[in-house]
Design a protein around this nucleic acid. Sequence first.
DNA 1: CGGTCTCTTGACGGAGTTCAAAGCTAGTGG
DNA 2: CCACTAGCTTTGAACTCCGTCAAGAGACCG
Lengths: 196, 196
Amino acid sequence: MLAIFENYIKNQNLALSEEEIAMITAAAVERTVSKKQILLQAGEVCRHKIFITRGFLRTYRIGADGTEHIMQFSPELNWTTDGESYTHRTPSAYIIEALEDSQLMIWNRDRFDTLLQTIPNLRTYSEQLISRHLHLSRNRLYQTFSATPAEKYADFLQTYPGILSRVPLRMVASYLGVSLKTLTRIRQAQLRHPVK
Amino acid sequence: MLAIFENYIKNQNLALSEEEIAMITAAAVERTVSKKQILLQAGEVCRHKIFITRGFLRTYRIGADGTEHIMQFSPELNWTTDGESYTHRTPSAYIIEALEDSQLMIWNRDRFDTLLQTIPNLRTYSEQLISRHLHLSRNRLYQTFSATPAEKYADFLQTYPGILSRVPLRMVASYLGVSLKTLTRIRQAQLRHPVK
DNA sequence: CGGTCTCTTGACGGAGTTCAAAGCTAGTGG
DNA sequence: CCACTAGCTTTGAACTCCGTCAAGAGACCG
């Protein structure tokens, strides 16, 4: 697991020294979770940054009517947390759950803050990550407004290739903001008109 | 204008010294724009950070079918830019336009970068702004999925009190991702059933 | 005052939702 | 390792809310 993380970090071209990477790694706790396990419960304060070395998480929220809305899929080699709850120590509205048995690296806030202060390039990296998430979030919002369900589905397949075999369709529907029924229809239509 | 900005900055409790504030202010260019003037054209690289001292901007995007989708309203005492285009020097997908005659403070990238390196607290502030935007973006996405048009409209009124007199309804509709027709219907319903 | 932009309203149509049932799949426990 | 169950996916029927189209009345600006 550690090797996976270190390898990932090196490939990000962050100009981090071997020592710094070792420090970052050393500050983490490794954890194995099984499918359906909850990493952050709604109402709880999010105290961790999580990196997924193997497996698959999702972040979702439950609406007033009880409907689940999936805000994020986090496959291996991705970071996740609830930034808002994390930085302001406020109760989170989100639930983070494992969709597969997963292996994680977890940093608590104190330790991560120390790292950020010690390693300037890590701070820069952290900023980049947030910017990227903001960009992704805005794009998704735009897509929600402008694209048809079929286009959303097509985009989804491009963005997350190979994900279909790992996630139930109803969750894809939830992520896209369409009903399961509609998603099924789209897929049937594509079978009849094999786009390519 | 400068006074407005300085006053705003002081009220943010950023632990900036008078000197630092003066530096930040000095690095800006003041600019007056009239209604309908474009500050960032689609396809252009966004080279500025903008603070609105008076007036009102919007950021929108034009879909494949020619429809406008408003991503952000920026009233006075707010920052705006296209962060993605700004940091990566890539063509922007967005258009930033004045909805009213406005007064702005504008920093170009070189100058602002220098400020960020010189003034640590400004960098922290900048990070906070991005985090806040991410949070807002995610909330809006969630609302788009979970709320009815009527709820979206009600939320909008709470979030932007007094905005209705400054923005045409069709733009509110665009921002909310509903048709103008639907928005009108909602408003009529509320006239008949005065909620409170 | 003429023209443009904005808002309302009506009629109509349709894409997507909800509800429900049934077949299928995969995971679990005995 | 099989049987059983719980969850997943598909499908059909009915509905409804929302969007498109179109027309007309105001309001605002030059």
